[in-house]
């Protein structure tokens, strides 16, 4: 199956989202209150790229962190079989109090990851607001969650899976739909 998004289009999409972020947070002081938090694993490099894209546009340094939501997953203790998922570090090296948090993930699907991420974030403080950025929205929500910025809406069936690959982790940039 051919890639739905290639490197050029991913890059262009992220630049567009960076512009949208600046537009929507244009109120005085708005940009100063922004902070990016990427959800591990692939939300983190996307958050870093957005920080760079914003820096390229207006020179602002947006603080960027990484969130591991494993410990907040609602399916963690449901399976009696198999080892526990590996936990990686959460690194949010700034206070999120009164910040406008831009939460970043690669694929929005059931919404359960985002639910877990919201719980995790709230344990770090009380942000002024949380906005959600996803590279791909593939539908099939199981919770009332909606993204504020979407790279690409990708209608999929439940039997398919969406594979996001990023240079930093996978050695190349592409988004692919796979039949499973």
């Amino acid at each position: 199956m051919p890639a739905v998004l290639d490197a050029v289009r991913i890059n262009r999409t992220l630049t567009r989202i960076a512009h949208e972020i600046l537009e929507r947070n244009a109120a005085p002081g708005g940009v100063d209150e922004l902070a990016l938090v990427g959800i591990r694993t692939r939300g983190v490099p996307i958050a870093r790229r957005l920080a760079k894209a914003i820096h390229d546009i207006n020179g602002h340094e947006i603080p960027t962190g990484a969130l591991d939501i494993t410990l907040y997953r609602d399916d963690l203790m449901r399976h009696a079989v198999g080892p526990q998922p590996v936990i990686r570090r959460t690194e949010i090296p700034f206070s999120i109090d009164d910040k406008r948090i831009l939460l970043v993930d690669d694929v929005l699907y059931t919404g359960r990851t985002i639910r877990a991420a919201l719980d995790a974030l709230i344990d770090f403080g009380r942000p002024k607001s949380i906005q959600l950025i996803v590279l791909v929205d593939r539908g099939h929500r199981e919770l009332p969650i909606k993204a504020d910025y979407v790279g690409k809406n990708l209608p999929t069936s439940l039997s398919q899976s969406v594979q996001v690959r990023l240079q930093e982790i996978d050695g190349r940039d592409e988004v692919e739909i796979q039949e499973s």
Binding site: Y72, A120, D123, F124
Partner: peptide, 27 residues
């Protein structure tokens, strides 16, 4: 090594303002 690496991630929880995660809720 798995235990040591997991402990690495767990240590960060002790440095948060709210030092609690819901992982073993109900256990």
């Amino acid at each position: 090594y798995l235990i040591l690496d997991t402990a690495e991630a767990m240590r960060e929880i002790g440095q948060r303002p709210i030092k609690k995660v819901p992982t073993l809720r109900g256990k």
